[in-house]
Design a protein around this nucleic acid. Structure first.
Length: 468
RNA sequence: GGUCCCUUCGUCUAUCGGUUAGGACGCUAGAUUUUCAUUCUAGAAAGGGGAGUUCGAUUCUCCCAGGGACUGCCA
């Protein structure tokens, strides 16, 4: 069967910030398109003129760009296609698949209440009436759905989902003001854009039945549907602000790497055996919509941090240093050129302990500090006369080292301890405090190497002189 | 209220009628380490409940319960 090339799309609505669930939907569409060698498109669903804003469109564009999920073709504005939508409605009207409904919003509200009480779908009295041509009263155009039989949505993820047609109401296609509604626009656009696979959130599963009916009424071929379960918060409730974050931009600000996000999001609702940490290439090779899990998944920060940490380890240190620099600037830190160089050296030494760039910045803080450091209580307590003298000897010893590589420094520290006839424990903690001021820092040799000889020895001098 | 979806360790998942139900995160305990972290080892931890099909159900069917979505001239 020579299947036609796959075309997927992500169709966010610019009525708010970009939800992390939207990001995952985009990822799955992208993965599937890449996996099949097809195309991945973007359509901005901006038919709601009241709530759609340019700023929100930009947020979506930026979010996708950050995630590395840019579409293969320029984004399509749904609203810009309004004439085409009206044309489709006219076709539906002409073929008897739609009708003008003159019910007022008040009348509809009443009917809705009655229909609900009777446990049936809402119907308009205008459905079978000759819509008085020439009337100047405002009207909407409703879809004239079948009253019996059933509509089956062959979902790629859920399997066949059966809907009784009598349960499906005659949804509005064209508003009183002549603007098309979402359900109509989606069908027309997906058809015109050649979308073969509609992969979207679970919340649209019910719509899929109505849209299928519209596709058929228009005489168009149905795309394949795949409805993704939603992402919930850690407590199982719908993901919202109180869970820490829901917008893509917030994850970026917290210091997650796009590749880490992609990896984690892919694992949320999809898996490939025991594989946990993988590359985009692997995900593309392995991904298939039919393997998506049916149940909703909860966002787990600990695991996100772990996955992100794995990608942080693989990331290039120059890139990490730049990101960390930006994070530190965000905290109000201004770094001089030599401090920047120090940052570049330290980033690779401490990244194993960081889940995010923000955490990485915290781990680098010891190196970024300006001399003279303010020592913490604990360190001051450790600096007894004996330790001071020992550190002074160590300072002299280290000053003789030309090679400030972690390896060589580690050897130097070890031989120094041996010469002194003591264990590292006798001066290690104090040296650590002197070098870091009490902040977290990597092992002594690495910390020294990252600081560099001038800064390292300088910090020792500061501590040894100041309190004397 | 109605329609639809979902239900394996705390969490994310594997299993596609026969397994000691596997892995990962997190957690606990050890080891290593100058602290923290890292690393290593070990451990606790699961099929919502009830029928049925079957020689045999986590896996298939049905019922119930719980959770969720939709039910807009929002998308």
């Amino acid at each position: 069967m020579p299947a036609k090339p796959v075309v997927t799309r992500i169709a966010p609505s610019p009525t708010g910030s970009m939800h992390i669930g939207t990001a995952r939907t985009a990822l799955f569409n992208w993965l599937y398109a890449r996996h099949t060698g097809g195309k991945y498109l973007l359509r901005i669903e901006d038919t709601d003129r009241e709530r759609s804003t340019e700023a929100n469109v930009q947020i979506i564009l930026d979010g996708l760009d950050w995630l590395g999920l840019n579409p293969d073709e320029p984004p399509v504005s749904q609203y810009a296609r309004i004439d085409r939508h009206r044309e489709a409605v006219q076709q539906l009207l002409d073929t008897g698949h739609a009708y003008r409904c003159f019910m007022t919003v008040e009348e509809v509200a009443v009917e809705r209440e009655i229909a609900r009480a009777e446990g049936r779908a809402i119907r308009s009295v205008w459905r079978d009436r000759d819509a008085g041509a020439g009337s100047n009263d405002p009207y909407v155009v409703r879809f004239k759905g079948p009253l019996d039989g059933e509509t089956i949505v062959e979902d790629l993820i859920k399997g066949p989902v059966v809907f009784g047609n009598k349960e499906l109401d005659d949804l509005v296609l064209l508003r009183t003001n002549g603007d098309p509604t979402y359900n109509l626009a989606v069908v027309v656009d997906d058809h015109d854009m050649g979308v073969t696979h509609v992969i979207r959130g679970d919340d649209h599963l019910n719509n899929a039945a109505r849209q299928s009916l519209i596709f058929q009424a228009l005489g168009w071929e149905l795309p394949a549907f795949g409805h993704l379960p939603l992402i919930h918060g850690p407590d199982g409730a719908k993901l919202s602000k109180r869970h820490g974050a829901q917008a893509v931009g917030e994850f970026a600000d917290m210091g997650y790497l796009p590749e880490g996000m992609r990896n984690y999001l892919a694992r949320l609702g999809w898996g490939h055996g025991d594989d946990e940490v993988f590359s985009d290439e692997q995900a593309i090779a392995w991904f298939d919509v039919k393997d998506v899990v049916k149940a909703p998944a909860r966002l787990d920060w600990a695991k996100l941090n772990h996955i992100n940490n794995q990608h942080l380890r693989k990331a290039d240190d120059d890139r990490l240093a730049a990101l960390t620099h930006t994070a530190l600037q965000g905290q109000g830190q201004q770094l001089s050129a030599d401090v920047e160089a120090r940052l570049r050296r330290v980033v690779g030494l401490v990244k194993e302990g960081a889940g995010t760039i923000q955490e990485l910045a915290g781990l680098c803080l010891f190196a970024v500090r300006q001399r003279p450091l303010t020592l913490d209580e604990k360190t001051i307590g450790l600096l007894g006369a004996e330790t001071r003298e020992r550190l002074a000897r160590l300072r002299t010893r280290l000053a003789e080292e030309a090679d400030w590589s972690p390896e060589n420094l580690a050897a130097a520290l070890k031989s120094f301890a041996e010469n002194e006839g003591v264990g590292m424990g006798k001066f290690g903690p104090a040296l650590r405090g002197v070098l870091s001021g009490g902040a977290v820092a990597p092992d002594l040799a690495s910390a020294l190497a990252a600081l560099g000889s001038d800064e390292g020895l300088g910090r020792m001098d500061d501590a040894l002189c100041s309190a004397q």
